[in-house]
Design a binder for these strands. Structure first.
Lengths: 210, 210, 210, 210
DNA sequence: AATGAATGAGGTTTCATTCAT
DNA sequence: AATGAATGAAACCTCATTCAT
């Protein structure tokens, strides 16, 4: 499945800059990122970043949009043909997991963005996220109406899924570092899709189902 | 109940520095934080930071230890006199929530620390966190043995609780910003203790109970 | 004859930085030198020093290499075509003197470097100095074999020539300062080449000859 | 033989400060020396330095006077009862050597002082040094009159002795560092008194004698 | 006399941004 | 579109000196 990062008719230079920027920002955050490092990884001259994109803030905004925008549409696509609310909820969780796995920058970037109070979050992206929560509300509501789900707070369910996933994902390097950790924690894969997503799916569904 | 931030026989100056540092680091992260700003908020000459504590890295490590260390002991204290695993689990969740509410730096600092792959996480603190997960494992295991819980992955349960709470907490300012958000999301209090913690408690227990 | 300071294909900016650095370091030593002052004298933005060369230590090492490296080769060139050991020794002394006169930074930089136990002396430069002593040993040995010199300790001879010259040279400003000094001391030129070098030459040769 | 460093009725604290200062200044020079380090080595509180002595410049001046002042008198004492100019000259050299050996700070401090153009040299000390040169002139003149010495430039002779000795002495740690140096250079003791002083003595006398 | 804490000026280094080519 | 060099502001850190006790 293709990922939205660097889509469209961007020049190859711009694409490389954005890709490099995404990786540097995701590793170091906005203030920790160095424009020099981004240019180096992109294999382009630093001045090109300013020429093609703009200053650091502009660049960051661009990255954010690429990395955590456009998720809603993707999930919507996956869900629209499904009837059963339970199955919809399962796909919702799974798609989320897939997205986080396939775009390794999503989790750290989002975490930092949240931690900083969304200081750099473009409103477009906020709206996109809201659309996702809304979608979930629709699923849950439908389930309640059909008598298979109990009443819950959709936003909380969303936060639990999202929070668990990004925390799980980003904690992988930390867990890998300490060899005194038991295998049950340390060896857990850093992929969410698969076992972890399944487990989350089950927990959420058990919590939500009548 | 007293909170661990700046306990012990530290001089008043050191306490003020650590407090100021905690707030600045939690707002801006390591690279975003300005030593000048920390000194200013502490009402202290900048050189005093170096005199009493050391450089920025050392200061950050100190803050981390103060902010997210010593949580294990606190939770253990709350739980040790309880018999019933279900009640233990509930108290576990509630205590966690209380801690996050009372120490507003915990959530953002921890998120960023996780997002950066624990680059600055002192091992002591990592061990402390592990102790917490271990405690949870004990609770869940006891519940399984007593026939009231189903088998689950303790670390995942921990991550769901933790992830949900810190994400919920830190997302408050973002949610507050957009007035096009429905009250159900926007007006949700930024406190976790109370409704939110209750809801999380219920979800987790429903997911875990036979 | 061209002097080694700032030779090669260095950019004009780098050359200016190194020249300014040499003069400031030779006046004030490593700790006393101010990067600001070096930038100012070089007519260059301070950041350029870091861009082109590196930090203060690196800059100092570069200066040391330029200032007191490459002396051996120069002396070797002057001596290789001479047969007579006595004449060789005379040229050795004279060339040394010329070098110290023409590169006013040599003497103070070397003195301070020695005084500090060679804390910043790059090994390359140490080897270069050793080569010089070795050359002198060759000359003295040849003289002994030809029956015109007595046995001496080459390193000591070297130290006497070198020590006398750099001490003489650097003491000039001090001598000039006190007008109660007799002309025989005070007015002595600060140039070594000429009278002073002749005198040293004669003393050394008288001491060494059978 | 007692050395002049910290003589008189100075309090024990002052003595310790001056001793510590001498060692730090001799290792690091004026700008490189840290008042903190001096206080630490003296085992006294930093403020005491200002209370008892004054600022860094004052402290340095004090050290200089103690370290390289009072040499003239000592040499005069050693020489005054000797008749023979040749023997006088030998004792002159030997006493110098002893002084440098016994006061390890003399050589580096003097070198740096010379290298910096005597920026911090108190005039008293300059006069003391002049007295030494004058003494040497007397010896040489006497020798010439008695028909045993040839005409030489006294200051140059002085510089050769002094320069050789302090350069030899301070170069010891550098020579010790490089194990590729031949034993003839590397293993040479760092003491001057004895072999080295003898050799210098002989060279100078051979150069000076008719 | 002595101490630990405090101060402010200034030093080194970094970094986003722009310029000239 | 692209580059290497340049800039200035600001960040971090140090250090001589002084203060309060």
């Amino acid at each position: 499945m293709d990922l939205p990062l660097s889509a469209g008719k961007k020049s190859v230079t711009v694409k490389r800059i954005l890709k490099a920027a995404a990786s540097v920002f995701s590793e170091s955050g906005f203030s920790g990122a160095r424009v020099d490092e981004i240019a180096k990884r992109a294999g382009v001259n630093k001045a090109m970043i300013y020429y093609h994109i703009g200053d650091k803030e502009k660049l960051y905004a661009e990255v954010i949009s690429n990395v955590i925008g456009n998720t809603a549409e993707m999930i919507e696509g996956k869900i629209k043909d499904i009837r059963d609310p339970e199955e919809k909820l399962r796909v919702y969780v799974r798609t989320f997991a897939r997205n986080i796995d396939d775009n390794p920058q999503v989790a750290p970037v989002m975490m930092r963005e949240v931690a900083s109070g969304g200081k750099h979050l473009p409103e477009v992206v906020a709206r996109d996220i809201f659309r996702i929560v809304n979608m979930l509300r629709g699923i849950l509501k439908e389930g309640v109406e059909k008598g298979i789900f109990i009443e819950t707070v959709p936003f909380l369910i969303h936060i639990m899924v999202l929070g668990a996933m990004i925390t799980y994902k980003t904690s992988a390097p930390i867990r890998a570092r300490y060899n005194w950790l038991p295998p049950g924690i340390r060896r857990l894969d850093d992929r969410i899709s698969g076992n972890i997503a399944d487990e989350i799916e089950n927990i959420i569904l058990k919590a939500v189902k009548k």
